[in-house]
Nucleic acid binder design. Structure first.
Lengths: 167, 167
DNA sequence: CTTGAAAAGAGCGGCCA
DNA sequence: TGGCCGCTCTTTTCAAG
């Protein structure tokens, strides 16, 4: 996992339609080694998958809601039930177990308030919850899938770089 | 935007490496019309882009933080400044203006607590903020980019379907 | 890692129904 | 619209330096 791999990843997480030739050119490699690196990154699971990102508004999914949940029961069984059922809901795009006062945090995408109401009723009917707080997004300012990869050195004297993973 | 388009979108938002032939087969179309539909969906911006989704943990980015912000100043100028500077931070993957008590909500991805501390200091140094609350994720239960598209009718008598966008 | 090249496959476009 | 049939480009693999 050197700086060339990071460059490749930075390119692919912005635009996965780039041809191997185009990527190779930008990272200073010919097709063959560039292709081998990408294969390795996929095999290692660093590249998890390639997806099409759709426009929610154009699909009538204009409402994003952040939901904070406090659970009543904290037994292992209960939590597994909970995790399974919430994960199964397609409106839930992200679902994290949290530290601190909030136990779980969801990011939910639905068409409108009416659809959220349906979702919400479904949510609280699934299992008893101590507290559920919904926060509604008015405007999406930024939304990206691109992770903050260490920037390539700004082309100058080679400075010592931080290790990235387990290199 | 009919149910075939929705099927195509459902497939592509799960796996953008599918060949047109494979997609066509699954939606019951041959390559050409299938390809034309995809072209139209891209031209219309329904398909926004295709990206590689990377594994944050494998890249040493193991900490996700939800940040709630209350702003002090609410003038238009100030908010534009704010939006611009926050958006520019690569650690900020999502950034929404909210309704209610919280003004803004961020989802931030960093390597660890030390990196978050650096980010946080940077955040509060950027502009004066009334209140900033950080909530730390302990476990990622679910994370997807796939939007909840209306499911295709479960193969039976053709029932009346709801309109999706402006069809 | 590079060049070169060839086979397989996918994207793309024309033309017909 | 959708379907058939090519043309072109990319991906993928291989050999040799």
């Amino acid at each position: 996992m050197d700086s060339i791999d990071l460059k490749i990843l930075a390119l692919l997480q912005k635009d996965a339609t780039l041809s191997i030739a185009a990527i190779g050119e930008q990272v200073g490699l010919s097709q063959t080694p560039c292709w081998k690196r990408i294969q390795r990154l996929e095999a290692d699971g660093v590249i998890d998958r390639r997806v099409a990102v759709l426009d929610p508004v154009k699909l009538g999914l204009g409402l994003t809601v952040f939901v904070s949940i406090e659970t009543a029961d904290h037994s292992k069984d209960w939590l597994e039930q909970f995790a399974g059922r919430i994960s199964a809901m397609p409106e839930v795009l992200e679902f994290y177990r949290m530290a601190g006062d909030v136990d779980y945090m969801l990011r939910v995408v639905v068409a409108d308030m009416a659809a959220y109401d349906t979702f919400y009723k479904n949510l609280i009917a699934t299992l008893p919850l101590k507290n559920v707080t919904s926060r509604f997004a008015m405007e999406k300012v930024k939304s990206t899938t691109a992770l903050p990869l260490p920037a390539p050195p700004p082309r100058g004297r080679t400075e010592p770089r931080l290790a990235v993973v387990g290199e």
